[in-house]
Every structure is written in C-alpha cells, then in structure tokens.
Design a protein around this nucleic acid. Structure first.
Length: 867
DNA sequence: TTGTAGCATTAACCTTTGTTCAGG
DNA sequence: CCCTGAACTTTGGTTAATGCTACA
C-alpha cells in the first residue's frame, strides 16, 4: 500500500509526520499489516478485511523489564488508520445503498406491495382537512406507526445477519474468516429482497427507507457506523457473557457471535426472534429484555414529520416509532457500538445525528481534537453545501438535547464537557471568572463552561498588540516557564534565594489596544533592546512608517535618520529566542527619501553584480574565441592530411596531449551537438538559435549548482557544457518541476512591469505599512502578488538597465538572464522574510489535508453521482 | 460490578532579544 | 575598520491522550 493510497487517512493521525519510529516495533516483515478493500460495490460486513499480527505488542516488550505493555506508536497508528479506512468505507457503502433506496423501480414495487389504506393514511393529512399542526403531527405519527407495523408484520428478518461491530483484535484473530455477510450487489438485489419480503435487519431498514421515500415522505437512512474501534481497551472488559475475555485467543468463544456460514437460517437463535407472527402485545413485553434492549439496529430510518418540522426515528425491525432512546446499544454489546450515527438524506448528503441517539454524546467522540477534526473532514464533502431550514431546526433540537442531558455523573465526563467544568480540569492559563456555581459534584463546585476565561501573561498580550489597563491585578499566578537560557538563569537565581518566580496572568478584558508613543521630531521610540516591537500593525507609532525591506537599516543610518529595527516575531533555536527583524521603522517624513535611497542602493548593488557577471562572461568568451583561433591556426599549420586523420590523432592524444587544445576541442564539440541545444532552446523559450552559444555559456552560470561555480574557471568551463545538456535532456524529477513552477508566473509579470520599474517598486508584502498609510495601500496590494516579488523586481531592473547601456553581446547575456530566473536564490530570499512561527510541519499538514479532501471529494462525487 | 484514581508513556505544544569569528 | 552572516549546540517543560491496574 503506497503513501497515496492511505493519505486520505488524514494528517491528524500524525502518522505522516516525518519518520515514524518503526524500529521500535518487532513485527517481522512476514506479518504485514494489510487492508484489503473488496473491489466493486459489494456491501456487506465483509467489505473490509484487516489482517494484523495478533501478538504485536508482546514480542517487542518482553526484552525490557516487566513493565506495563503499552501500545507502540506504530500499532496505534495502524489501529487508527484501520478505524479510519473502515469508517470511510462503511460510509461510502452506505451512501451507495442510500442511492439505491432512491431507485424509481424499487419505489414502484414497494408501493405496489403497500396496502392502499396505509398510503391513504398519509395523503389524508392535509392542512385543509386538519388545520391544527400538532394534530396533523399526531396523525402523521399514527400513520407512520401503522406503516411500520405493517412492515414489521410483513418483512421476514433473518436472524443475526448484518453489519456487526468487531474489535481490532477480533479481526486480527480472524474472527471474520468464517463470516458470510449477506451480499447485496445492486438495486436489483434490494428489489429481490423487497419482493421476497425477507432479508437482514439492515436490508429491512434500507427497504423501509425506500418505501417511505416512495410515499413522498422525506426519509433518511440512518447508520450507526460500526467501524473497528481503535482503542485497545474496547472489547477488553470482562463481562463473562459474550465477549471473550481475551479476544486474541478466543477462537471458541468467538464462535458464539459469529454467524454460521452457509445456511443462514437453520441455526435460529431464540434470542433474536424477531418474527412477525408474535402478537404485538406479547412481543413488546417479551422483547423488552433481550431483543429490544440488547439489539438496537445498525440501520434505521428517520422520517420527516412536516407538521412538526422534525425528524422521527423509525425502526421497522422492532416496530418502533419515535423512540429515540432505544437506539443506543448497551455499553458492552460486542456487536453494536455506537460511535458515529450518520443520516443519509435523499439527496445523498449526510448529517451527523449522533447526539440524538447517544445518551452521553459528549463522551462518544473521543480521541481528542485531532480525531474530531478528522471526523469533520470526513463529513465535510458529504455535507450539504447550503443549509435548509429544517437543518437549523434540527441543530437547535440537538443542541437542546445536550442541554437537557444534564450534568455528567463522573469526573471524567466533566472533562471537555460543552456546558460544565470542574475547577480541577482547568488548564494552566484558564480561570473561572464569575465564580457562580451552577451545581455541585461530589462536593466540588461545578461551573458553567462559558465562565472559563483563558489568560495570558502581560508579555503575551503585548505580542497581540495589547497592553494591560492600569491597575490590573493578575487573575492567576503560575510558576514561570523558563524556556530560554536567560529565563532559566533568572529562575535559578531566584530559586537560589529561596523564592519562587511566579508570573501573573491576565484576561482579555484587562487589556486594551497598545498605543505606542508617537514619533516626536522624527525620533522613533525604541524599547530596551534598541528596536521596536511590531507584532501587529497597530503597534506602529503614530507618524511612523514601516519599511519592510532588508538592508534599510544601513541606509537609514547613512542618511542620518533616526530609525528603529522592526521586530515582527521570534525564532526559536537551541533554547534561544532570536528576534526576526523585518526592515525598519522611520518617521513618515523620511519615508520617501529612505525608499529612494533604498531602491537606488538596490539598483546599485544589482548593477555591480551585473557588471561582475558581465566580466566573467566576457572572460569566458575571450577564452573561447582565443582557443578557437589557436585551434584554427594549429589545424591550418599541421592538419594537412584529411580530417579523419587529424581527428584520430586528437582522440588518441586526448589524455596525454598538451591539454589546452584537447580541452577546447571538447568544448567545441559539445557546443555543436545539435540535439541538446534544441531542447535547451525549447525549454528556456529562447527566441533564436543564433544566440544559443552565448546564452548557453551564460546560462551555465545559473544552472551549475556546484560550489566551485566561481572558482577555477577551467573547471567551470568544463562542467558547464555537459551540465546544460544533461539538465535539459534528462527527464525532470517531480521536485525539479515543483521548484520551477512558482517561477513561471513571474516572468510575464516582470516583463509587464518593465516600463514603470521605479514607480511600482516590488517588495515583500507588508501589512504594517499599508495599514498605517492608506495612500500606499494600492501599491502594497500590487506588491503583494507574490512573496518573491522583490526578486522579480530586481531582475526586471537589471534587464532594463542593461538593455539601455550595454554592448550587443552583453545585452543578449542580460536578456537571457532575465529569462533564466534561478529558483533557489529567490526562494531563500523570500523565505527569510517569513515569520518564524509558520512551522514546516504545519505546511505539510495542510498539504496532506488538501490531499485528503480531494480524495474525499472524489469519493463523494463517485457515490452521489446519480443521486 | 462499575467507575475512577493513579501511573506510565508518548506526542504536541509553548517558549519570546547571544556570542564569536571569518570574510567582504 | 566595520558590517554581515554563519556556526555554535543539544533539547527543555507542560499538557493531553491513552492504556492499564488497583481499589472503592
């Protein structure tokens, strides 16, 4: 399985973060983790087979001391990934079934089976006949009850067939090996089941959903996703009943839950007697214990009651209407675990309705923020892009449900509860501000989650451009964190004196926007470090301008302006924080002068660089021409025989000859090779072949990436030529392509800007400048087109200058130069202007998320194409 | 019997202003 | 002589999530 294949698992798992600690795991390569997705739309509980070594953690831990065996990172990732794959696969399969439930022919057949009286029950409900909405609601529910009852009587449910939950260990131990799920290959199979009026509970619910839709009732196919749990603890608890104490070894004990393959009905299990023939009264009474309580379904239906404007759950297998409390399986049911409950609507979109059915819904989706995020990402492409009124109503209802769920009954349940908090679960930087108790839990006060305020140190508020209001007292004091060496020394010094260093934390309300002291007489205020904090634009002093260019400090100093370097962030390396300086801040009246001087200096240094380069190129040309002339002379003087002889001599002498001539010969030969040059021309979009020779000599400068570039000229000369042909002939790697791409859009931009170089100076985007000086906003926006704009600008200028003033050969050199924008330097320059807080991993994660989203979109598109 | 506290482990996150020296 | 930039160094502390055991 390649990386692409599993990339949709999501970055949140952290599995993709760099190298995993594979060496910790002692799983031999003979026992690989393999996840097979059955091809085709075969939907059954056999859709996924996951094979894993069952003895995983024991082997590797035994080497160490007899400590508690803990799941290795690799296994956790494998479990998590299995869970994710399984979840997505089950969702996809359900999406397909949901689509089948829209089949027109299926609708027609189901309707033809339905007694007219039942159908009339729904068509009778009409505003004209019954103006009272609540009464209409009751009518609807009654009609639905009759329909459900009829279905329940009519449809023969196979016992013990259908999707079941299996733990990771069970699957690993091969619990699924003998299991034969029912196979429903297409709408036709569904129709067959409909005509036969028999099938699994899953099929029953799916058909019932289709039936409701055929009657014009908005109906959802609800699915409690039974994916492999990733937690090792799930299924482990030792209820002696049906769960094997250790699923790993329990082949025999497993047997009782595994349906016997082949003949599906013979082994009728009395516990699952869900047949029609029982009179309802008795059945209810009797079912309440084992089947009703013990066997909530995995699939069921929600119908929309238009008069009431809400969704009503219907379980056609147990003949339940509007009893949402009876869908949550008991905690230890090994076959049914409620984790996510998803409702598929007619249009193929889904809604997460877990909260409606799970009692402690707040506790269900564990696994932390990352897992929640992942789940949201899974649902995102399946969610309706717009909202219907009924969605809002439903959300309100679900929200209300959380409210009336009441206070948790355990300490752990208070953790991350959306409504309540215990003080013990507060974080370091959190405090409960209006300390109004909303209740008590085992003697501890319970507070409302909304009263939790997150705090920051005064310094941290400053980083947000906020300062404390006068007289603010810290709401909390916490021991100081000593992260940098300096801080650590401070803390240690204090500790030596026996005092503890605490730092005060303040709330947002205790702060106000920081207004820096204004510029006075061109004097820029500075902090203790001699620079100016500019973390956010609002921290720019009145009358000041931020010029975010590198090297402006030097110029400002030369010009004699008062200035302060702008600190826009920090970089953390080796327990040390170094400020990120982004240009300078000067008084507004000095801005134009400074900018002008800056651009002049940029132009100047570019000119110098260009001159240097021209010199280098000219030197090489001189050498080449010189060599050619020597060669010509030598040939004239000595090569009196035929050409072949002369070349032969040269080839033979290549290694011990004088060197100069042979070397030149090499050069000449390479240059006249027609093929590589052609490619070069095309690739570089050079207009004529006439300038190829010169351009290539020049281009070598850009393309040679060896460090000896500016070193020995001979070496340079020899390396250049093959390298050009090589780089153009060899297929480019993905990375090369990727590096080239960002450069491309720059070329036209640079060319366009050429005439008005000076009036539209390119620069790295800098919000600070534009924020304080609106008149510069337009220019700033224009600049902000790309972070590498500065580089593009430089090249543009160089181009224009050279074409004005240089000799013809130099001009062509400069021209080709403008086209050959070297990728690497531009990127480095741009990179330095970035804030240090954008970590590499975040970018990676984003890219991976993008990938995952794309995959899901594809899945969603595939599954809902005909929907 | 269930729930939970306690412990171990891991990963992710937070942190927030140097010095020296070679080379241009 | 001044300025710039690279190299140096080694790696914390807290919190949350998770799994497991013991115990009320």
């Amino acid at each position: 399985m390649s990386d692409e294949d599993i990339s949709f698992l999501g970055a949140s798992s952290g599995a993709e973060d760099g190298e995993m600690d594979w060496e910790e795991v002692d799983i031999s390569p003979a026992e690989p983790v393999s996840v097979n997705l059955a091809p085709g739309p075969v939907i059954s509980n056999k859709t996924i087979e996951i094979t894993l070594p069952s003895e995983k953690s024991k082997g590797k831990e035994k080497a160490g001391p007899p400590r508690v065996k803990v799941m290795s990172q690799a296994e956790r990732v494998a479990r998590l990934n299995s869970h994710k794959i399984h979840t997505v696969a089950l969702l996809a399969s359900t999406a397909i079934r949901n689509r089948w439930a829209n089949d027109k022919l299926l609708h027609a057949r189901l309707m033809s089976l339905t007694p007219l009286a039942l159908q009339h029950g729904f068509s009778m409900i009409h505003k004209k006949l019954q103006p009272d909405a609540s009464k209409r609601g009751r009518l609807f529910e009654a009609a639905m009850s009759r329909l459900c009852e009829w279905w329940y009587e009519t449809f023969d449910v196979y016992p013990d067939v259908g999707i079941k939950s299996r733990t990771y260990d069970q699957v690993a131990a091969g619990a699924l090996d003998g299991e034969e799920g029912e196979v429903v290959r297409s709408e036709k199979s569904l129709m067959k089941h409909a005509l036969q009026r028999s099938g699994s509970r899953d099929v029953s619910a799916q058909l019932f959903t289709a039936l409701c839709r055929s009657l014009g009732i908005p109906a959802r196919l609800v699915f409690s996703v039974q994916s492999v749990p990733w937690q090792a603890s799930v299924g482990k608890p030792k209820p002696k009943k049906s769960t094997p104490s250790t699923p790993v070894l329990g082949d025999d004990s497993d047997m009782e839950e595994v349906p016997i393959p082949g003949p599906s009905k013979p082994k009728a299990q009395p516990a699952v007697k869900l047949r029609k023939r029982k009179p309802p009264g008795r059945k209810l009474q009797e079912d309440i214990r084992p089947p009703l309580a013990g066997w909530p379904p995995v699939f069921w239906t929600e119908v929309f009651s238009r008069p009431d404007g809400r969704w009503i759950p219907v379980d056609p297998v147990r003949n339940l209407v509007n009893k949402k409390r009876l869908f949550e399986p008991p905690k230890n049911d090994p076959n049914n675990r409620m984790t996510y409950v998803v409702a598929f609507e007619e249009d193929g979109y889904v809604r997460d309705v877990t909260r409606r059915y799970a009692r402690a819904s707040t506790k269900l989706l564990r696994g932390g923020r990352a897992h929640k995020e992942w789940w949201e990402n899974v649902l995102a492409p399946l969610t309706r892009p717009y909202r219907l009124n009924r969605d809002d109503v439903e959300d309100d209802e679900l929200q209300y449900q959380t409210v009336i769920e009441g206070m948790p009954t355990s300490v752990a349940a208070f953790k991350d509860h959306p409504l309540y908090v215990l003080e013990r679960h507060l974080r370091r930087d959190e405090v409960i501000h209006p300390r109004t108790e909303v209740g008590r839990f085992r003697g501890d006060p319970v507070f409302s989650r909304s009263a939790v305020i997150s705090l920051k140190t005064a310094e941290n508020w400053m980083r947000q451009g906020r300062t404390l209001v006068e007289g603010a007292q810290p709401l909390k004091r916490v021991p100081m964190r000593a992260v940098t060496i300096n801080r650590r020394r401070e803390v240690e010094a204090a500790a030596a004196e026996g005092e503890e260093t605490l730092q005060g934390l303040y709330s947002y309300a205790q702060t106000k926007v920081y207004v820096p002291p204004p510029i006075v007489d061109g004097k820029v205020p500075k902090n203790d470090f001699g620079n100016l904090d500019l973390y956010v634009p609002s921290m720019l002093p009145a009358g000041a301008v931020h010029i975010p260019h590198k090297g402006t400090a030097k110029i400002a100093r030369q010009l004699g302006f008062d200035f302060a370097e702008a600190v826009t962030g920090f970089e953390f390396k080796k327990r040390r924080a170094t400020p990120i300086v982004t240009g300078v801040v000067v008084a507004a009246e000095n801005e134009d002068a400074l900018l002008e001087a800056y651009w002049a200096s940029v132009a100047d240094s570019e000119e110098k660089e260009r001159a240097k380069r021209r010199e280098r190129v000219l030197k090489r040309w001189t050498r080449l021409v010189h060599g050619l002339r020597i060669r010509e002379r030598l040939q004239k003087e000595y090569a009196t025989t035929s050409n072949g002889v002369a070349i032969d001599v040269e080839v033979q002498d290549e290694h011990h000859a004088g060197g100069f001539v042979t070397e030149l010969d090499n050069v000449v030969q390479h240059f006249t090779l027609p093929k590589p040059q052609h490619v070069v021309v095309e690739n570089a979009m050079r207009p004529t072949t006439a300038s190829q020779l010169r351009a290539d000599a020049d281009a070598g400068d850009d393309f040679v990436l060896t460090t000896t570039r500016d070193g020995d000229e001979d070496v340079d000369m020899e390396e250049v030529v093959p390298q050009v042909s090589q780089s153009t002939l060899a297929p480019k790697t993905m990375q090369q392509l990727a590096e080239e791409r960002p450069i491309e859009p720059q070329r036209p931009a640079a060319a366009k800007r050429q005439p008005s170089t000076r009036s539209a100076p390119a620069a790295p985007p800098q919000p600070v400048a534009s924020a304080s000086r609106p008149r510069r906003a337009a220019a700033a926006v224009a600049r902000a087109a790309s972070t590498t704009a500065a580089r593009g600008k430089k090249r543009t200028r160089r181009h224009s200058v050279s074409s004005d003033s240089a000799t013809s050969s130099v001009r062509s050199e400069a021209g080709s130069d403008a086209e050959f924008v070297p990728p690497t330097p531009a990127r480095t320059v741009a990179g330095r202007t970035l804030r240090a807080r954008a970590p590499k991993s975040a970018e990676k994660v984003r890219a991976e998320k993008e990938l995952e989203r794309a995959y899901r979109r594809a899945v969603a598109a595939a599954t809902s194409r005909d929907a």
